[in-house]
Write a protein that binds this DNA or RNA. Structure first.
Length: 600
RNA sequence: CGGGGCGUGGCGCAGCUUGGUAGCGCGGGUGCUUUGGGAGCACUAGGUCGCAGGUUCGAAUCCUGUCGCCCCGACCA
């Protein structure tokens, strides 16, 4: 491809001010993407080539484990989502599904994911165990009305995703296929030149039993990963389980009531009364909003030096009720408190807060659901709010055994924690960008959408399902986050828009331009992805652009043309080889082979 | 939704405090020169200063409202 006759590179000299992180800045500056609106981007020709390279890697790997590509609609009828009971959760309130009505007033959603559609198709086309297992996938634009789109392609409202769905006759078969996909994913990410970690993860709104995320480690990542150095454990912080440090026992000489005027935070109470946070039980109140306008006040307790994990809390509360939990939010808004609660000693609440604090006229349930983290329930003597403004209290021999208290794990694991009493390794923390997520869904969707098959024994059974996602556009940006330098992008060759760029330094020199044409056509004949920068600009301009757009090899045609010599430059390690033109192709092929095989 | 920042040509910005008919750098076009690290000279095109009201003889500038974008938080496949 020639720069002058195909497309303007569209590189910028200055970095657009809207971009914060380096990968986003480089995508804009190098002309790969252009913003059309918040979270909506145009993929320019170079970007499309990257997307196509990534897609090809994915397809090759998935096809090799027996997956089949198809293409599903993006406009989904609401009925289908109502059957799976996800319509309300995905459209109401904080829901992320764009939705609309057609001219008849019929409701539709723009697809954020495809479990419903594929399951309904599977229920019609799969009848017998003889047809199983099956795995379908597609690579397609998804729509999600993100609360806050961020960092370019990292979290956008329209993005390209590979989503795959598998169907099985048994849980065992699902589990073994899930492992196969997991391996295929590792190959895919390696083939993209990325370093990833697989971590245990929360399943979120997709649901299901077991799930694993693939993370690109990068400081700009939105997720936190906790892991052990030996690799024995790795999990998203949302999911990670650990042992909290030992609490410092409370001294005996403390009076039952502590006057703690205006000391609303754990730190203030500790500083003023010579206490340690691990001697205090922190109480945080939440409102759980269920489907059908059903609101439950939640009182969550945790040891003062620990933090509540709202994902764990959400999942725990969701299981308490057969309605779906739509939203969980801290109660801190004055209006909400005034309307529904009375005599609430905010900042001085204890685990035994009276149910009478909920107003009779409130539409909330009239009883606090009290959820106690293990770190709190393990303490029998502790300090907590006195349920009286400006007072804290010592709880002696207090027991959470009564049925009023629900004990569970709602704690955020953190770095420095141990993962078991038998293992001395401490957890470490890194930031990660989630580029893949795989789930064992089980029978959740097949039950709801009545997707059954006849098994060997003649019985009608629900299909077992898995689903598997890869953020294609996110991979591209994550790759830049992991592979760049001061001058610009350094694409891994596997996903680079071109393998090599030819830079003639002075096209007016007939020797140079003849040589350039010769080399260019020779590379094309040999099916090499080559870009020819045939602009009449000065060499410096072309060098800068080549570095910015990050193509792994540069061929520089210049002064030595007269001796039939050119330079082969490697973008990443900046090595320069002077080569005679008759050896150029051969050398390039062997050098690029080395780079292709050096899977990180 | 809460907090903060910003809207002036394709990109980066100044001007706003103290109102007076819009400027700089880069980029674009034409011509000549130049050609291994973002060239030089000359000429040139391109902007209802986000939008709407108001104050004023006069508003990019002051006031009110509104919209949009970015960041942090809340939240989130």
């Amino acid at each position: 491809m020639r720069v002058t006759t195909s497309f303007p590179l569209g590189t910028l000299r200055d970095t657009p001010s809207e971009a914060e992180i380096i990968s986003h800045q480089l995508l804009l500056k190098a002309g790969y993407i252009r913003r059309v609106n918040s979270g909506i981007y145009a993929y320019m020709p170079l970007m499309l080539r990257v997307i196509e390279k990534i897609s090809a890697i994915i397809e090759k790997e998935l096809n090799s484990i027996g997956c089949t590509k198809l293409l599903l609609p993006q406009l989904h009828p609401a009925d289908l989502w109502k059957k799976s009971e996800r319509w309300e959760g995905y459209t109401a309130g904080e829901g992320i599904m764009f939705n609309l009505k057609d001219r008849q007033g019929k409701e539709f959603g723009l697809a954020p994911t495809h479990e419903e559609v594929i399951t309904s198709i599977a229920s019609e086309t799969i009848n017998s165990y003889k047809q199983l297992p099956q795995c379908f996938y597609q690579i397609q634009t998804k729509f999600r009305d993100e609360i806050r789109p961020r960092f370019g392609l990292m979290r956008s409202r329209e993005f390209i995703m590979k989503d795959g769905y598998s169907f099985h006759s048994s849980q065992n078969d699902l589990a073994s296929f899930y492992e196969k996909v997991s391996n295929a994913y590792e190959n895919i990410f390696k083939s993209c030149g990325l370093q990833t970690v697989g971590v245990e993860a929360d399943s979120g709104a997709i649901g299901g039993a077991s799930s694993k995320e693939f993370m690109v480690t990068a400081d700009a990542g939105e997720d936190s990963i906790l892991f052990t150095q030996s690799g024995s454990y790795a999990a998203n912080i949302e999911k990670a389980v650990s042992l909290p440090s030992q609490p410092i026992p409370l001294k005996d000489n403390i009076p039952e009531w502590l006057e703690t005027p205006h000391q609303k935070t754990i730190l203030e109470v500790c500083d003023n009364n010579n206490l340690d946070p691990s001697q205090i039980i922190k109480v945080v109140i939440f409102l759980a909003q269920f489907e059908g306008e059903f609101n439950v006040p939640i009182l969550a307790c945790i040891r003062g030096d620990q933090h509540i994990n709202e994902v764990k809390l959400f999942n725990l509360i969701n299981k308490l009720n057969h309605f779906n939990l739509l939203n969980l939010k801290k109660i801190e808004d004055k209006k909400t408190i005034e309307k529904n609660l009375v005599d609430l000693p905010l900042g001085f609440i204890g685990p035994d807060l009276d149910n009478n604090t909920i107003k009779a006229i409130s539409n909330w349930e009239k009883q606090w659901t009290r959820i106690i983290d293990h770190s709190a329930s393990d303490l029998s003597k502790f300090i907590s709010g006195g349920n009286k403004v400006n007072f804290h209290k010592v709880f002696q021999e207090f027991s959470f055994d009564s049925k009023d208290y629900l004990i569970g794990d709602i704690r955020n694991a953190k770095k420095g924690d141990k993962i078991s009493v038998y293992d001395d390794e401490e957890l470490k923390e890194k930031k990660g960008i989630e580029i893949g997520h795989i789930f064992q869904l089980g029978q959740k969707y097949s039950e709801k959408l009545n997707a059954k098959f006849s098994d060997k024994d003649g019985q009608l059974k629900n299909l077992w399902m898995g689903c598997y996602g890869i953020g294609v556009t996110r991979i591209a940006q994550a790759a830049i986050e992991q592979n760049h330098d001061q001058k610009g992008i350094c694409w891994p060759i596997h996903i680079s828009p071109f393998e090599v760029i030819i830079i003639p330094t002075n096209l007016k020199d007939p020797i140079q331009s003849d040589l350039t044409e010769q080399i260019y056509s020779n590379f094309l004949i040999n099916k090499i992805d080559v870009l020819l920068d045939d602009r009449n600009d000065r060499a410096g301009v072309k060098f800068k652009d080549a570095e910015l757009i990050g193509i792994p090899f540069q061929i520089i045609i210049g002064r030595d043309s007269i001796n039939k010599e050119v330079e082969l430059l490697c973008r990443t390690n900046n090595t320069k080889l002077k080569i005679s033109t008759d050896k150029l192709l051969e050398t390039f092929i062997s050098e690029s082979e080395i780079m292709y095989n050096k899977k990180s």
